[in-house]
Computed example of a mutant assay.
Amino acid sequence: MATWSTKPSLIAAAIVVLGLSCSAGVAHGRRHGRSFVSSYDEPCKEMRLYLHDIIYDYSNSTSNSTSAAATKPTALSTAVADPGYFFGEMVVFNDPVTEGTALPPSLNETAAVRAQGMYFYDRKEAPNAWFSFSLVFNSTAHGHGTINLMGADLMSEKTRDISVVGGTGDFFMTRGIATLSTDEASAGLEYFRLKMDIKLYECYV
Rank of each mutant, 00 (worst) to 15 (best):
P127R: 12
F86T: 07
F172I: 15
L189M: 15
A27P: 05
L49I: 14
V97H: 02
F86D: 05
D122N: 15
M90T: 15
A152C: 06
A112M: 08
S134P: 03
G167Y: 05
D82F: 06
G188W: 02
G19D: 10
S65C: 12
E202S: 13
A14W: 03
Y40G: 05
G29V: 06
Y56D: 09
T6C: 01
R114M: 14
E157V: 02
V136K: 03
T110V: 13
L20E: 07
T78L: 05
G88L: 01
A102G: 12
T6Y: 01
A185D: 05
T159M: 08
S65E: 06
L107S: 09
T182W: 02
L76Q: 03
M155P: 00
E125A: 14
A141E: 15
A70G: 02
L76V: 11
N64T: 11
L154F: 10
N94W: 03
D41Q: 07
G169F: 08
N138E: 11
V80W: 08
R30Q: 15
D170E: 02
K7H: 11
F86N: 06
R160Y: 09
D197C: 04
S38L: 13
Y58D: 14
L200N: 09
L149Q: 12
A185V: 14
A75K: 00
R31D: 13
L20R: 06
A102H: 05
N148C: 05
A112Y: 08
M90W: 03
M47G: 08
G84M: 11
F36K: 01
S67R: 01
I162Y: 01
S35W: 06
A70C: 03
H144W: 09
A187K: 12
F137E: 08
L18M: 12
I55E: 14
S181I: 02
T66P: 07
G176Q: 03
L154Q: 14
T140N: 02
G84N: 08
L194W: 00
A24G: 09
L107F: 10
S186T: 12
S5V: 00
I198D: 08
C44Q: 15
P96M: 02
A13E: 03
S39K: 03
R193A: 04
A178F: 01
A75P: 00
M118T: 07
A178I: 04
D122R: 12
A79Q: 08
T6G: 00
A115T: 04
K124S: 13
G88P: 08
Y201T: 14
S65T: 09
A81I: 00
G33W: 05
P73D: 03
G100H: 03
F93H: 12
E190C: 13
E184H: 05
N60Y: 10
M196E: 09
P73H: 01
A79R: 08
P43T: 13
E125K: 13
L194R: 00
D53L: 04
V16W: 05
I147H: 01
A141F: 09
E125S: 14
G117V: 05
N138T: 10
R160Q: 13
I54T: 11
W130Q: 04
A178G: 01
V17C: 15
A152S: 13
G166E: 09
W4G: 00
L135M: 02
P105M: 02
Y204L: 14
M196V: 03
H142E: 11
T71H: 09
Y119W: 10
I11V: 15
